[in-house]
């Protein structure tokens, strides 16, 4: 009985929290602030997941400041095969919801 209660509580908590990805989804307003199209930011998010997440665990954009993300992306580009335009897209997305 108790086991069932615990399992139900955990499933409920995880279920409720699992409704959406934790990774920030950019909005129209972000696009206006960044002076780019919403598609650019969405593409940056996709690239962050596929390119960066392809090699290591992903970090939430809010973990670092704009300046820190710019430095991180510069350093990471040396280690990966992403070109300048891809780096720009990912950085744009990351700084949208940076610390």
């Amino acid at each position: 009985m108790c086991f069932r209660n615990i399992v139900s509580a955990v499933i409920l908590i995880l279920g409720l929290s699992a409704c959406a990805s934790t990774l920030y989804l950019p909005t129209e307003q972000d696009a206006v602030v960044q002076n780019v199209s919403l598609n650019t930011l969405i593409r940056g998010r996709e690239l962050y997941i596929s390119t960066c997440g392809g090699c290591h665990n992903l970090y939430l954009p809010a973990k670092y400041t704009n300046q820190e993300w710019i430095l991180i992306m510069g350093k990471m580009q040396e280690k990966t095969k992403i070109d300048d335009s891809q780096k720009e897209l990912i950085t744009r997305y990351l700084i949208t919801s940076a610390k």
Binding site: A18, C19, A20, T22, L23, G53, N57, L58
Partner: peptide, 8 residues
């Protein structure tokens, strides 16, 4: 599944 990119 990734805990940041995916819902869970």
């Amino acid at each position: 599944l990734d805990p940041v990119a995916n819902p869970i």
